[in-house]
Design a protein around this nucleic acid. Structure first.
Length: 622
DNA sequence: ACAGTGCATGCCCGT
DNA sequence: CGGGCATGCACTGTT
């Protein structure tokens, strides 16, 4: 036992701004005998049953497994009560304790995201002491590796501070769990003091919040989200899962507030689609589009291009419906044969899972509530398997949902988040309705910028020899992907899938082929002739089209032809003369025609409604 | 016997 | 060469 340390110069909670060195300190006597100290303010927010990452880092809870002697981590337990719970049962490593102990969801995620306690029978036998779960105060949570990690050090490299959390505690998330040795400090368990059996331990299901670094990173990318209200489009797509970030901030660092996101969402705003060069040329936008955070253009946490969300306006609109919601596309994945198979396990890309799904420290993971476009709600089990020294994340129990959506191998599921509701959206895109990047033989369908209809049965037989999905269509017409094909074939598919993304630039171009149509523009005073080819109307010009910065030609109130161009930096639209030569990367600073609006700080001349109309008319006219 | 579960295997790509 | 991930497969539970 060590005596409480002399008052430190700062609260142990590095996020605490209310250091009161002159006041008595509060802390916890840890089982290790160490004293974890917090300032008065922070300490007052801690309650029995909570645990603290700070404590953990200061007074590490490493124990020897009672069964095998393996040195494992206790799981950030703070309170004496929790320790008492530990005492009779001791601590067991994952191998030994797997069948005995239980856990709850990560505090970082909202209750509605998880399986409701009132439903699963598996929870009936695991009563929760509500008084130990309720309350407010800072509760640490395992910081999931996320795209924000480019902004922050990994926990194992930089012990984290306790994170303040929402005060509402959800008992909905309690699930059986098993003890397991954390892979690193980020794997700290979130123990509550749920009583059940000699060594029953639970993680609290509180909502937690991200670090300030998270927030700052996110807020550095204010355009991460798509406001559908401002940029409406035509609904055509389906969606599926949802969750609600029901826990709002409690005045501390936000947990699920609008400014708080579990991960930085790559965003597909409509202005992207309307501005291909903008997108390509703008590093910032590329980061967003690619799911890359700032400063991590080629970072370790970068999602592979094949997981970049390519959700369309139609999908976004369908997801949001008539609400004012903001859609944040997260990632997408093409269903493999295994994913779409009867096993019902959807393998999640590791980085995506860790970036956008609730952090899980136990293989059993967490149940996620799912809702499809019809309002049907599903529950997936988000979990992982140890794999070598890594993890394989999977969603289990997806078969009903996949069948409901009539998805099969080659189809694409997309994950987005709906704000401010906080719903997690799992949309889908049938292979037959794939974007140009998803299928090469879609030219006819996309000439007019109209993708195939959602809900069409996927027809792999119509895929190209090596289609965008990475699945090799069978030579025989009508052949379908075999869900039980041998690895020999699947390997071929994998190889081809990877071949298709051999170049990020290439895929960027493919992705924006539709938009590229909008970039091909004649001189404004050239009237096109309309030709019809195979039922599609094409604008035909005598001279070769020019690939230029996309602008919107219009006529002002005085009847004078003008064009609207979007600033590369602030995304505001500026009015410039119709014949103005514009570089591909244009910013407000170059708005020499309107000095008052030659700065990004200047308000946009167009109202959102006017812009909406402008974009609409532009789209309809192209 | 069948279904479900958890882990292992091995290919491929990125570094 | 290491990591990701598709999938095989052994093991366990259920009918």
């Amino acid at each position: 036992m060590s005596a409480p340390p002399a008052p430190s110069k700062s609260c142990y909670n590095s996020h605490c701004t209310e250091l009161r060195p002159d006041r008595p300190r509060k802390g916890w006597r840890l089982r290790t005998g160490e004293f974890a100290e917090l300032c008065d303010r922070c300490a007052s927010l801690y309650e029995e049953g909570r645990f603290c990452e700070t404590f953990h880092s200061k007074a590490s809870g490493w124990r020897d497994c009672e069964s095998c002697g393996k040195h494992v981590h206790c799981g950030c337990i703070v309170s004496a009560h929790t320790f008492a719970l530990l005492d009779p049962g001791g601590i067991e490593c994952a191998t030994c304790a797997r069948k005995n102990v239980h856990f709850t969801a990560s505090p970082a995620w909202p209750a509605s995201l998880f399986f409701h306690a009132s439903s699963p029978d598996r929870l009936k036998d695991h009563p929760v002491k509500l008084n130990q779960l309720a309350g407010s105060g800072p509760v640490p949570w395992r910081q999931a590796p996320s795209l924000f990690n480019s902004c922050i050090p990994r926990p194992e490299l930089h012990p984290r501070s306790p994170y303040e959390v929402d005060g509402s505690i959800n008992t909905d998330r309690l699930l059986p769990r098993e003890r397991y040795a954390p892979l690193d400090f980020s794997e700290r368990l979130m123990n509550g003091s749920v009583k059940q059996g000699p060594i029953e331990k639970y993680e609290n299901g509180h909502a937690a919040l991200r670090t300030e670094e998270h927030q700052s990173c996110f807020m550095n990318n204010p355009q991460h989200s798509v406001s559908l209200k401002e940029e409406p489009s035509t609904p055509q797509f389906g969606l599926a899962t949802s969750y609600a970030l029901t826990n709002e901030t409690n005045g501390h660092l936000g947990v699920a507030g609008p400014q708080f996101r579990p991960a930085p969402p790559p965003t597909l705003a409509k202005h992207f689609y309307g501005n291909m060069l903008h997108e390509i040329n703008s590093p910032v936008e590329n980061q967003i589009r690619n799911g890359r955070p700032r400063g991590d253009v080629r970072g370790k946490n970068q999602l592979l291009p094949r997981y970049w969300p390519r959700i369309t306006d139609q999908e976004l609109q369908q997801i949001s419906g008539d609400s004012n919601s903001v859609i944040t596309p997260l990632f997408e994945k093409m269903l493999s044969a295994s994913d779409a198979g009867k096993v019902g396990r959807l393998v999640l890309p590791k980085k995506c899972a860790e970036a956008y799904f609730p952090p899980i420290s136990q293989p059993e993971g967490l149940p996620l509530k799912v809702q499809d476009a019809k309002g049907s709600e599903w529950t997936f089990q988000f979990r992982f398997w140890p794999n070598n020294n890594s993890r394989m994340y999977v969603l289990e129990g997806v078969t009903p949902c996949i069948q409901s959506m009539q998805l099969q191998a080659g189809d694409i599921v997309t994950f987005s988040r709906l704000e401010p509701e906080g719903k997690l959206i799992m949309g889908f895109r049938k292979a037959s309705a794939a974007l140009p990047s998803d299928q090469e033989n879609e030219a006819g369908k996309t000439v007019n910028g109209v993708p195939g209809q959602v809900g069409e049965a996927a027809d792999p037989s119509s895929w190209s020899k090596v289609d965008k999905s990475g699945y090799v269509a069978k030579d025989a017409p009508g052949a379908k992907i075999s869900l039980s094909r041998k690895r020999k074939n699947s390997t071929l598919g994998l190889k081809n899938k990877r071949l298709r993304i051999d170049s990020e630039d290439l895929i960027e171009l493919k992705l924006t082929w539709e938009e590229a149509q909008g970039l091909l523009r004649p001189p404004p005073d050239h009237a096109p002739s309309i030709v019809v080819i195979e039922g599609f109307e094409f604008e035909e010009y005598e001279d070769a089209p020019v690939l230029g910065k996309p602008t919107i030609f219009a006529t002002d109130n005085g009847g004078e032809k003008i064009q609207w161009v979007q600033c590369e930096d602030c995304l505001k639209w500026r009015k410039v003369p119709v014949d103005s030569p514009l570089p591909s990367k244009w910013t407000c600073a170059e708005n020499k025609w309107d000095p008052e609006r030659s700065s990004c700080s200047a308000a946009q001349e167009l109202t959102s409604e006017e812009l909406e109309d402008l974009l609409r008319s532009s789209n309809s006219g192209s």
